[in-house]
């Protein structure tokens, strides 16, 4: 097709990274990542429905170091996408468009996602101790 090799605009690499643009692309990256992460949830659910051996295999992987790192990343991506999604819904309702608000809610989302991730893992490890 003749249109294939046209140069693309804007040239994103000339812009200084900003909280707005970084969080925007992070929303997409976490969204795609969460979609990939559903494979792990699907494995866990299907294994539980299949039987104890299959479930132990899935649980062994999830409990391993790599499994825990993936689950930690999944938890944070989930809370980031959730919090930033709420930010998007507020924009959809017509609020929070001025620069101060956009910056403030952006950092709020980052902090909230980290706090919620920490709370979820503290709760999870608390259960393990019982």
């Amino acid at each position: 097709m003749a249109t294939q090799d046209r140069p693309l605009s804007p040239h994103l690499q000339v812009y200084r990274p900003q909280i707005t643009s970084m969080l925007s692309i992070l929303h997409r990256i976490t969204g795609v990542g969460l979609g990939a992460g559903t494979l792990l949830i699907a494995w866990w659910l299907i294994a539980a429905a299949t039987g104890p051996e299959a479930f132990d295999t899935a649980q062994a992987f999830i409990g391993s170091l790599i499994g825990r790192l993936i689950l930690l990343g999944f938890t944070w991506a989930l809370f980031y996408h959730l919090c930033n999604g709420i930010r998007h819904l507020v924009w959809d309702a017509g609020y929070g468009y001025d620069l101060d608000s956009v910056t403030r809610t952006g950092w709020l989302v980052v902090v909230a996602s980290l706090v919620l991730t920490a709370l979820a893992w503290i709760a999870g490890y608390g259960m393990r101790g019982l």
């Binding site: 294994a47 999870g124 259960m127």
Partner: peptide
């Protein structure tokens, strides 16, 4: 979180 460590 409530199911951490639970068996099948």
């Amino acid at each position: 979180a409530s199911l951490v460590g639970a068996d099948r």
